[in-house]
Design a protein around this nucleic acid. Structure first.
Lengths: 224, 224
DNA sequence: CCAAAAGTGTTAACGCTACACCCATGT
DNA sequence: ACATGGGTGTAGCGTTAACACTTTTGG
């Protein structure tokens, strides 16, 4: 139901909320802005959609600007359109949720920003625009996704231990889980299988190495 | 992360997927277009967002153009942005899901369309743009919402019978349910209460009249 | 009195939760 | 030998799923 696009002057941007896990803690990728009026502030990586570019493609492009990852999960989150969300004018932002294993993410230093950095989600600084709202929304969606789908594959490297897996759930959902019940549930869903070999991470007993049976999105009730 | 909106010429529209229930069947509100190149085709009601208008406000405005409803549920669905989705140019559409009781929806006849009509969702005609995709997505979201929230209130009038309620679930989820288990579940959730009085709808035993205890959105696992 | 929808309980299977001890390794 | 995380089973409880007959009304 559209008419004459030339009559509008609404801008369309994408913003990426990129999550990852390190040492059983949730991190989010932030950039430090040069541009006024937010000079020095932190924000989500994003940018205007190009001419003849689809929103999904723009999100991928912005993502590749800061990092290069093979195993990646990306989904559209929500479109934020408050009039005053951008002081530069009426800019609507299509927000995306991205998940990646931090081991595979090599950050690039960019001229257009002062800095690009993984920041603990629990110590989120003030963000530019309405990006705090976007980040909070993304966190909620992530919680839901963990509980009802198998997306967790997108946060872990190829090989991992069951304790690694459990820590992802515990840190994101913010509650401790029972080790035995957790393993029973995970194994009954056929999400993972033994990869052969052990992973040693200290002066203790090494853990069995696991891998995901599939890295395709699936709906599965994982945790109540 | 936006720069200079004047450099873009992307249009932004909203499209509403409006569902309702009649005689235990799911209906969707469609308009028949006059505008070329879709003259005579059916489509979802929608339109470009105005200058200085927020997407939510645009969705409400478009909704008021075709109907006037008090009890209404409206939520953003997804933003569709395929390059070729609109032959008029690069127009991104923020799609909305709306739910209303059909009794309260008085359709307005509009000059800009040939017709505005409730159509059975099961007999959906070919739609203009990518509106078939939007409608399919909306239907999925509706199914999920029914199972995990109390939105069903938005599809029924003030007073209704438990059989009415069950038929809403059966028609949208596409499966029969056990009457006794259904009632047990609904009553245990305190979603509804007796409204006093009976509702007779034929030559048979009249049913107890119920009303919702609350018409505010809530998360509640209703059906597995 | 007949047709049609309203209304009402019990049981068995399953899934979830809670809970404690031994094992393997490096220092 | 010890400190630390890895690894394993069972029993009680609550929830879900399957199932059939009686009641009320209008015609």
């Amino acid at each position: 139901m559209a008419k004459h696009p030339t009559k509008q002057s609404i801008g369309v941007a994408v913003d990426n909320c990129i999550f990852s896990i390190k040492n059983g803690e949730l991190y989010i990728l932030l950039i430090q802005m040069k541009k006024k009026p937010f000079t020095g502030m932190w924000a989500l990586p994003g940018g205007l959609i190009h001419e003849h570019e689809e929103p999904d493609a723009a999100a991928h492009r912005v993502l590749r600007e800061e990092t290069n990852v093979a195993h990646l999960y990306l989904e559209q989150l929500y479109t934020f359109g408050k009039i005053k969300r951008d002081p530069a004018g009426h800019i609507i932002s299509v927000a995306y949720l991205a998940l990646m294993p931090m081991e595979e993410a090599h950050l690039k230093t960019l001229l257009k920003y002062f800095d690009v950095r993984w920041s603990k989600f629990s110590e989120l600084p003030r963000l530019a625009y309405d990006h705090e709202e976007i980040a909070a929304y993304a966190k909620q969606r992530l919680e839901w996704k963990l509980e009802y789908t198998n997306v967790v594959w997108s946060l872990l490297p190829d090989r991992f231990t069951l304790t690694d897996l459990q820590k992802v759930y515990e840190s994101i959902l913010g509650r401790k889980m029972d080790k035995r019940n957790f393993r029973k549930k995970i194994m009954s869903l056929d999400l993972v299988e033994e990869a052969g070999g052990k992973i040693a991470r200290g002066a203790y007993r090494p853990a069995t190495s696991y891998k995901f049976t599939s890295r395709k999105p699936k709906i599965v009730d994982i945790l109540s």
